[in-house]
Amino acid sequence: METAAESSGGRGSLSELYSSSKRLLLKTRESLERLERLEYTSSSSSFSSSSNVVPGNSDDQVTVIRRDINQIQSLGVDMDRLWRSIAAKSQRDLWKRKVEQVVEEAESFRASLDKYISRHQKRMQEAQERAELLGRANGESSHILRIFDEEAQAVQSVRNSSRMLEEAYATGIAVLSKYSEQRDHLKGAQRKALDVMNTLGLSNTLLRLIERRNRVDKWIKYVGMVFTVIIVIFFWRWTR
Protein backbone atom coordinates (compact mmCIF):
# COMPACT_ATOMS: atom_id res chain seq x y z
CA MET A 1 0.00 0.00 0.00
CA GLU A 2 1.49 3.34 -1.08
CA THR A 3 1.40 6.23 1.34
CA ALA A 4 0.70 9.83 0.36
CA ALA A 5 4.40 10.61 0.72
CA GLU A 6 5.27 7.88 -1.77
CA SER A 7 2.87 8.61 -4.60
CA SER A 8 1.36 11.71 -6.21
CA GLY A 9 -0.58 10.08 -8.99
CA GLY A 10 2.06 10.29 -11.74
CA ARG A 11 4.10 13.41 -11.03
CA GLY A 12 6.48 11.79 -8.54
CA SER A 13 6.52 11.10 -4.83
CA LEU A 14 6.32 13.82 -2.21
CA SER A 15 10.05 13.50 -1.60
CA GLU A 16 10.79 13.79 -5.33
CA LEU A 17 8.57 16.84 -5.71
CA TYR A 18 10.29 18.43 -2.72
CA SER A 19 13.75 17.73 -4.18
CA SER A 20 12.70 19.24 -7.52
CA SER A 21 11.37 22.34 -5.79
CA LYS A 22 14.60 22.78 -3.81
CA ARG A 23 16.66 22.55 -7.00
CA LEU A 24 14.46 25.16 -8.64
CA LEU A 25 14.72 27.40 -5.58
CA LEU A 26 18.52 27.23 -5.76
CA LYS A 27 18.48 27.96 -9.49
CA THR A 28 16.11 30.89 -9.02
CA ARG A 29 18.20 32.35 -6.19
CA GLU A 30 21.32 32.23 -8.37
CA SER A 31 19.46 33.76 -11.32
CA LEU A 32 18.19 36.62 -9.16
CA GLU A 33 21.70 37.25 -7.85
CA ARG A 34 23.05 37.41 -11.42
CA LEU A 35 20.25 39.79 -12.37
CA GLU A 36 21.05 42.06 -9.42
CA ARG A 37 24.76 42.03 -10.30
CA LEU A 38 23.84 43.02 -13.85
CA GLU A 39 21.66 45.78 -12.43
CA TYR A 40 24.55 47.09 -10.30
CA THR A 41 26.93 46.97 -13.27
CA SER A 42 24.45 48.80 -15.49
CA SER A 43 23.88 51.45 -12.82
CA SER A 44 27.65 52.00 -12.41
CA SER A 45 28.09 52.32 -16.16
CA SER A 46 25.27 54.83 -16.41
CA PHE A 47 26.96 57.09 -13.85
CA SER A 48 30.37 56.84 -15.51
CA SER A 49 29.16 57.39 -19.08
CA SER A 50 25.58 58.58 -19.02
CA SER A 51 25.58 59.89 -22.58
CA ASN A 52 26.53 56.57 -24.23
CA VAL A 53 24.79 53.97 -22.06
CA VAL A 54 22.68 51.29 -23.73
CA PRO A 55 20.85 49.34 -21.00
CA GLY A 56 21.51 45.58 -20.94
CA ASN A 57 18.77 43.32 -22.23
CA SER A 58 17.62 41.25 -19.23
CA ASP A 59 14.23 40.34 -20.71
CA ASP A 60 15.06 36.66 -21.21
CA GLN A 61 16.41 36.32 -17.67
CA VAL A 62 13.28 37.86 -16.18
CA THR A 63 11.06 35.53 -18.22
CA VAL A 64 13.04 32.43 -17.17
CA ILE A 65 13.01 33.43 -13.49
CA ARG A 66 9.25 34.05 -13.49
CA ARG A 67 8.70 30.71 -15.25
CA ASP A 68 10.76 28.89 -12.59
CA ILE A 69 8.86 30.61 -9.78
CA ASN A 70 5.56 29.54 -11.35
CA GLN A 71 6.84 25.96 -11.57
CA ILE A 72 7.87 26.01 -7.89
CA GLN A 73 4.41 27.21 -6.92
CA SER A 74 2.87 24.46 -9.07
CA LEU A 75 4.95 21.89 -7.18
CA GLY A 76 3.84 23.52 -3.94
CA VAL A 77 0.20 22.91 -4.87
CA ASP A 78 0.91 19.20 -5.45
CA MET A 79 2.93 18.85 -2.24
CA ASP A 80 0.27 20.67 -0.22
CA ARG A 81 -2.29 18.10 -1.37
CA LEU A 82 0.00 15.15 -0.63
CA TRP A 83 1.18 15.99 2.90
CA ARG A 84 -2.41 16.32 4.07
CA SER A 85 -2.95 12.63 3.22
CA ILE A 86 -0.12 11.34 5.43
CA ALA A 87 -1.50 9.25 8.27
CA ALA A 88 1.25 9.78 10.86
CA LYS A 89 0.84 13.17 12.55
CA SER A 90 4.57 13.66 13.19
CA GLN A 91 5.41 13.08 9.52
CA ARG A 92 2.47 15.21 8.44
CA ASP A 93 3.63 18.15 10.58
CA LEU A 94 7.20 17.78 9.28
CA TRP A 95 6.12 17.87 5.64
CA LYS A 96 3.76 20.75 6.33
CA ARG A 97 6.68 22.88 7.56
CA LYS A 98 8.81 21.89 4.57
CA VAL A 99 6.11 22.72 2.04
CA GLU A 100 5.31 26.02 3.73
CA GLN A 101 9.00 26.95 3.58
CA VAL A 102 9.11 26.23 -0.16
CA VAL A 103 6.00 28.32 -0.77
CA GLU A 104 7.32 31.21 1.33
CA GLU A 105 10.66 31.23 -0.53
CA ALA A 106 8.87 31.23 -3.88
CA GLU A 107 6.75 34.21 -2.80
CA SER A 108 9.89 36.00 -1.59
CA PHE A 109 11.57 35.45 -4.97
CA ARG A 110 8.49 36.73 -6.78
CA ALA A 111 8.50 39.88 -4.64
CA SER A 112 12.22 40.42 -5.35
CA LEU A 113 11.63 40.01 -9.09
CA ASP A 114 8.74 42.47 -9.04
CA LYS A 115 10.92 44.99 -7.17
CA TYR A 116 13.69 44.55 -9.74
CA ILE A 117 11.27 45.20 -12.61
CA SER A 118 9.96 48.29 -10.82
CA ARG A 119 13.50 49.61 -10.29
CA HIS A 120 14.38 48.84 -13.89
CA GLN A 121 11.40 50.81 -15.17
CA LYS A 122 12.28 53.71 -12.89
CA ARG A 123 15.86 53.73 -14.20
CA MET A 124 14.60 53.69 -17.76
CA GLN A 125 12.31 56.64 -17.08
CA GLU A 126 15.13 58.60 -15.43
CA ALA A 127 17.50 57.77 -18.29
CA GLN A 128 14.92 58.92 -20.80
CA GLU A 129 14.51 62.21 -18.94
CA ARG A 130 18.30 62.68 -18.93
CA ALA A 131 18.40 61.95 -22.64
CA GLU A 132 15.75 64.58 -23.28
CA LEU A 133 17.75 67.16 -21.33
CA LEU A 134 20.92 66.26 -23.22
CA GLY A 135 19.06 66.45 -26.51
CA ARG A 136 17.98 70.01 -25.87
CA ALA A 137 21.62 70.92 -25.28
CA ASN A 138 23.39 69.20 -28.19
CA GLY A 139 20.65 68.19 -30.66
CA GLU A 140 21.48 64.47 -30.47
CA SER A 141 18.46 63.37 -28.45
CA SER A 142 16.68 61.58 -31.29
CA HIS A 143 19.12 58.65 -31.36
CA ILE A 144 19.26 58.32 -27.56
CA LEU A 145 15.49 58.54 -27.18
CA ARG A 146 15.01 55.88 -29.81
CA ILE A 147 17.30 53.54 -27.88
CA PHE A 148 15.47 54.05 -24.59
CA ASP A 149 12.05 53.89 -26.25
CA GLU A 150 12.95 50.50 -27.66
CA GLU A 151 14.21 49.33 -24.27
CA ALA A 152 11.06 50.60 -22.54
CA GLN A 153 8.92 48.75 -25.08
CA ALA A 154 10.97 45.61 -24.51
CA VAL A 155 10.45 45.87 -20.74
CA GLN A 156 6.70 46.31 -21.22
CA SER A 157 6.66 43.35 -23.57
CA VAL A 158 8.40 41.22 -20.93
CA ARG A 159 5.84 42.24 -18.32
CA ASN A 160 2.96 41.37 -20.67
CA SER A 161 4.55 38.05 -21.64
CA SER A 162 5.28 37.19 -18.00
CA ARG A 163 1.72 38.00 -16.99
CA MET A 164 0.29 35.82 -19.78
CA LEU A 165 2.68 33.00 -18.86
CA GLU A 166 1.70 33.29 -15.21
CA GLU A 167 -2.00 33.13 -16.10
CA ALA A 168 -1.39 30.10 -18.31
CA TYR A 169 0.50 28.34 -15.48
CA ALA A 170 -2.26 29.17 -13.02
CA THR A 171 -4.84 27.73 -15.41
CA GLY A 172 -2.76 24.60 -15.88
CA ILE A 173 -2.33 24.17 -12.13
CA ALA A 174 -6.08 24.52 -11.58
CA VAL A 175 -6.86 21.96 -14.30
CA LEU A 176 -4.33 19.45 -12.96
CA SER A 177 -5.65 19.91 -9.42
CA LYS A 178 -9.19 19.22 -10.66
CA TYR A 179 -8.02 16.10 -12.48
CA SER A 180 -6.29 14.90 -9.32
CA GLU A 181 -9.37 15.51 -7.17
CA GLN A 182 -11.60 13.72 -9.68
CA ARG A 183 -9.18 10.78 -9.79
CA ASP A 184 -9.28 10.49 -5.98
CA HIS A 185 -13.08 10.60 -6.00
CA LEU A 186 -13.26 7.97 -8.75
CA LYS A 187 -10.85 5.68 -6.90
CA GLY A 188 -12.94 5.96 -3.74
CA ALA A 189 -16.14 5.28 -5.65
CA GLN A 190 -14.48 2.35 -7.41
CA ARG A 191 -13.38 0.80 -4.12
CA LYS A 192 -16.88 1.13 -2.71
CA ALA A 193 -18.43 -0.31 -5.84
CA LEU A 194 -15.99 -3.24 -5.83
CA ASP A 195 -16.81 -3.93 -2.19
CA VAL A 196 -20.53 -3.97 -2.97
CA MET A 197 -20.06 -6.17 -6.03
CA ASN A 198 -17.85 -8.59 -4.12
CA THR A 199 -20.55 -8.80 -1.47
CA LEU A 200 -23.19 -9.52 -4.08
CA GLY A 201 -20.94 -12.14 -5.70
CA LEU A 202 -20.77 -10.57 -9.18
CA SER A 203 -18.70 -12.31 -11.85
CA ASN A 204 -15.01 -11.71 -12.59
CA THR A 205 -15.96 -10.68 -16.12
CA LEU A 206 -17.85 -7.64 -14.85
CA LEU A 207 -14.97 -6.76 -12.52
CA ARG A 208 -12.52 -6.82 -15.44
CA LEU A 209 -14.88 -4.60 -17.44
CA ILE A 210 -14.86 -2.05 -14.64
CA GLU A 211 -11.08 -2.16 -14.37
CA ARG A 212 -10.79 -1.64 -18.13
CA ARG A 213 -13.06 1.41 -17.87
CA ASN A 214 -10.87 2.74 -15.07
CA ARG A 215 -7.79 2.44 -17.30
CA VAL A 216 -9.59 4.34 -20.06
CA ASP A 217 -10.43 7.11 -17.56
CA LYS A 218 -6.77 7.28 -16.52
CA TRP A 219 -5.67 7.65 -20.15
CA ILE A 220 -8.22 10.40 -20.63
CA LYS A 221 -6.72 12.16 -17.61
CA TYR A 222 -3.17 11.81 -18.95
CA VAL A 223 -4.21 13.09 -22.39
CA GLY A 224 -5.82 16.08 -20.71
CA MET A 225 -2.64 16.76 -18.72
CA VAL A 226 -0.49 16.55 -21.87
CA PHE A 227 -2.91 18.83 -23.72
CA THR A 228 -2.72 21.37 -20.90
CA VAL A 229 1.11 21.31 -20.93
CA ILE A 230 1.10 21.78 -24.73
CA ILE A 231 -1.16 24.83 -24.38
CA VAL A 232 1.15 26.31 -21.71
CA ILE A 233 4.23 25.72 -23.90
CA PHE A 234 2.44 27.25 -26.88
CA PHE A 235 1.56 30.39 -24.89
CA TRP A 236 5.12 30.67 -23.65
CA ARG A 237 6.69 30.33 -27.09
CA TRP A 238 4.12 32.62 -28.68
CA THR A 239 4.71 35.40 -26.19
CA ARG A 240 8.51 35.35 -26.45
Results as ranks from 00 to 15, higher is better:
M1N: 06
S8G: 11
G9T: 09
E16P: 03
R29S: 15
E33Q: 15
R34Q: 10
R37K: 11
S49V: 01
N57D: 15
D59C: 10
D59A: 12
V62P: 00
V64F: 10
N70L: 00
Q71N: 05
I72W: 12
Q73N: 06
G76M: 03
V77D: 14
M79W: 04
D80P: 00
D80C: 00
Q91F: 04
R97I: 09
V99F: 03
Q101L: 10
V103Y: 02
E105G: 01
S112T: 05
L113W: 07
D114N: 07
D114H: 05
K115E: 09
Y116N: 01
S118V: 04
H120R: 15
H120Q: 09
M124C: 05
E129D: 13
A131V: 12
E132A: 10
L134S: 11
G135C: 03
A137F: 13
G139E: 05
L145M: 14
L145E: 07
F148Y: 15
A152V: 03
A154D: 04
Q156M: 01
Q156P: 00
E166G: 13
E167T: 08
Y169Q: 14
T171V: 05
I173P: 00
S177Y: 09
Y179R: 09
Q182P: 03
K187T: 13
Q190C: 06
R191C: 02
R191L: 06
K192D: 14
L194D: 13
V196Q: 08
G201I: 03
G201H: 11
L202V: 14
S203L: 06
T205K: 13
L206C: 04
L207M: 03
L209C: 11
L209H: 14
R213E: 11
R213Q: 09
V216D: 01
K221F: 05
Y222W: 06
T228G: 08
T228N: 09
V229K: 14
V232C: 03
V232T: 02
V232F: 12
I233P: 02
I233T: 08
W238I: 02
W238D: 04
T239S: 14
T239Q: 14
